[in-house]
């Protein structure tokens, strides 16, 4: 039965992909990509990849749609007609696609327990997590503890991306708060935004600190936190949002998050362990792991939220 749902969802995804290619209006394309990520997130849910689904929901359907819209707002709405014939790209894509499909023939079947991926490190992670780390959600233990170096690298990449956007787009302070023509018409939106703004932030904190037990973690929490502020900016204007959270503060926060993460690693060295070894942070190794994971998730969340808001502010402050 679940296979049937998989197939239907994959079919819908494929149709959406074709429609995105065919569509000329860029705003409509942004809308369709948001539908695409909603559908693929439900596919991840069916496949039991809860953390991936949460990430896809928060990032794919939420923040990337918003950033795509902000980008389209700076350019034109219509896609330019291509100036070259599509034959050569079509041939390249067909050959590559055929090669990839040929490659899948050698892959193990879906859910095959004898697949190489389940033989190597994954079984060790699954087996050792309850004893070594004591975190129910194995994804969090792999991401934050076993693979802590990789995650530090990812956070640094996000920080660098934020710095790059800042360098390219610059940033203008909005002195006055430009209001659209229909302020009166935003009353309903404003009431709802006021009602939801604290709830979204609270929910972001829940996702952040509940990541050990359920789906979630620093990345998703940071994005949800930023989304809350974006809702505020949409309802009350960018100027008011900047009065709540200043741009210089965001730049500091983006760096602070990465520094918290690295500091936890160095703290491990100072206490006689290795870089990013959490076991030495407390008397009991398992408590140390908990503390370390909590702290680095906090760092990740701060950086991600700050960078997302920097990018959003950067795009929106240029539309005049």
């Amino acid at each position: 039965m679940e296979h049937l749902i998989d197939i239907v969802l994959l079919g819908l995804l494929m149709i959406t992909g074709f429609a995105i290619v065919r569509m000329k209006s860029l705003l409509a394309v942004a809308m369709l990509t948001s539908i695409y990520s909603l559908l693929s997130a439900s596919l991840f849910v069916v496949l039991d990849a809860v953390d991936v689904a949460l990430t896809e929901a928060a990032i794919g359907a939420g923040i990337s749609t918003i950033l795509m819209l902000a980008t389209v707002a700076l350019t034109r709405d219509e896609e330019k007609a291509p100036r070259h014939t599509p034959l050569l790209p079509l041939a390249v894509v067909t050959v590559t696609g055929a090669a990839l499909i040929y490659g899948t023939l050698d892959m193990p079947h879906y859910g095959d327990p004898a697949a190489p991926v389940h033989q190597h490190a994954a079984s060790a992670y699954l087996h050792d997590t309850p004893g070594e780390i004591g975190v129910p959600n194995v994804v969090t233990s792999v991401l934050a503890s076993y693979r802590g170096y990789d995650t530090l690298g990812e956070v640094t990449v996000i920080f660098t991306a934020g710095a790059g956007v800042l360098a390219l787009l610059g940033y203008r302070t909005r002195r006055r708060n430009i209001q659209g023509p229909g302020i009166r018409k935003l009353v309903v939106l404003r009431v709802i935004a006021k009602l939801f703004f604290p709830l979204i932030l609270l929910f972001a904190l829940y996702v952040l600190f509940h990541g050990d037990y359920g789906p979630g973690g620093g990345f998703q929490a940071g994005v949800i936190f930023a989304t809350g502020f974006i809702l505020y900016a949409l309802a009350f204007g960018l100027g008011n949002a900047q009065r709540v959270i200043h741009h210089p503060l965001l730049r500091i926060m983006a760096a602070v998050g990465v520094l918290i993460y690295a500091a936890v690693g160095i703290e491990g060295i100072l206490l006689g362990g290795k870089f990013l070894e959490y076991g030495v942070l407390a008397d009991d190794p398992v408590t140390g792991q908990h503390l370390g994971i909590m702290l680095i998730e906090l760092g990740v969340g701060i950086t991600v939220a700050a960078v997302m808001l920097i990018i959003y502010y950067g795009f929106v402050s240029r539309q005049d």
Partner: peptide
């Protein structure tokens, strides 16, 4: 998460 995000 979906309810909140899709609204925004």
């Amino acid at each position: 998460v979906y309810v909140l995000i899709s609204f925004v």
